[in-house]
């Protein structure tokens, strides 16, 4: 298929996934902010959110100090912020618009309808409670779009490039969410194992739809080590890094069927570290260090995908 078309589909999926994950990050942050303890710590949490999902420099130029309300506004409907939900939905729709030949009409209609609703939203319309509804709605639209894609699209290269975007973006986002919790929100020693810590890890699990999964797998209280194991190494957990890399490797295998590509090799290498990795070793290296390396390798993988398949002219 045309490199330009593949590129559009890859980014279409990445942007949808990014919008969903931004909604998830904001949701967990608002939940955490309800705790008196975190409220006391104040800005540092929202600083962390900005670091995962936005551009701190651009933010401080236009918004000044960091507050929950301002960061939320910046990441939801700010039209100048390229990574706001508003902008990522628009970018997804524009990529889809350019490739209406490659996607099904149901996909186009769904994404276009999402954009038409988001387009004219204003912060006032979201209100306070509306924000939670908005995040739920964004997640739902993303689920819907993926479902339509899965249910209607021919399994050709166009499909595979679209799916590839989903998993490359998802592993990036999940790694970032984990990193924030463990590094920036590093619990003070006396909090570890306490009610507040427990609540925070629970919120983190919920933000990646893993709360119930955790209890199914461990039948026990929430422990940081297990949460990270679940989100990094467990291949049955659909948002875990391992799971994302399973999918990425399979897709790149299909796309590289005619001749081996460097992208497939890189993905295989990264996958092996998760497939054969042990949580004990990860903690020995340090979780933050592990995640930083993962993000770097994941980025390199994305760049190599663009290169191996001639996505950009």
């Amino acid at each position: 298929m045309l490199g330009r078309s593949a590129n559009h589909l890859y980014w279409m999926s990445r942007y949808i996934e990014r919008a969903e994950n931004t909604a998830r990050i904001l949701e967990i942050s608002q939940r955490m902010a309800l705790l008196p303890h975190v409220a006391k710590k104040g800005a540092s949490e929202w600083q962390a959110v900005l670091e995962i999902a936005g551009d701190v420099e651009d933010y401080s130029k236009r918004y000044g100090d960091i507050t929950a309300a301002k960061v939320t506004a910046y990441l939801t409907l700010d039209r100048e912020n390229h990574s706001s939900i508003w902008s990522t939905i628009r970018a997804a729709r524009e990529n889809a618009h350019a490739e209406r030949v490659c996607i099904t009409s149901e996909m186009w209609e769904s994404l276009n309808a999402t954009w038409l609703e988001v387009k004219d939203l204003t912060p006032a319309m979201l209100g306070k409670n509306g924000q939670r509804d908005f995040f739920d709605w964004i997640k739902e639209r993303s689920h819907l779009f993926r479902g339509i894609t899965f249910g209607t699209m021919l399994r050709d290269d166009a499909y595979h490039f679209g799916r590839l975007g989903t998993f490359v973006e998802r592993s990036d986002n999940v790694a970032r969410i984990l990193d924030v919790k463990y590094h920036v929100l590093l619990p003070s020693v006396e909090d570890v194992g306490g009610a507040i810590d427990n609540f925070q890890w629970g919120a983190l699990l919920r933000s990646v739809s893993g709360f119930r999964a955790y209890h199914r797998v461990y039948h026990d209280t929430i422990e940081p080590r297990r949460v990270t194991e679940l989100l990094i190494l467990n291949d049955s957990m659909p948002r875990s890094l391992h799971s994302c890399l399973d999918a990425t490797v399979a897709l790149l295998g299909m796309l590289s069927a005619d001749k081996p590509t460097e992208a497939a090799r890189l993905a295989g290498e990264l996958h092996a570290s998760l497939h054969y990795g042990k949580i004990g070793d990860i903690f020995k290296t340090g979780l933050h260090e592990f995640l930083t390396i993962f993000l770097k390798r994941n980025n390199a993988l994305s760049a190599e995908i663009q290169h191996s398949f001639h996505l950009a002219a």
Partner: peptide, 16 residues
């Protein structure tokens, strides 16, 4: 932008 000419022939840039 998807096409280019080389050695007198027209090519398109595909993923392969």
């Amino acid at each position: 932008q998807d096409l280019f000419v080389k050695n007198g022939h027209v090519f398109m840039r595909t993923t392969k």
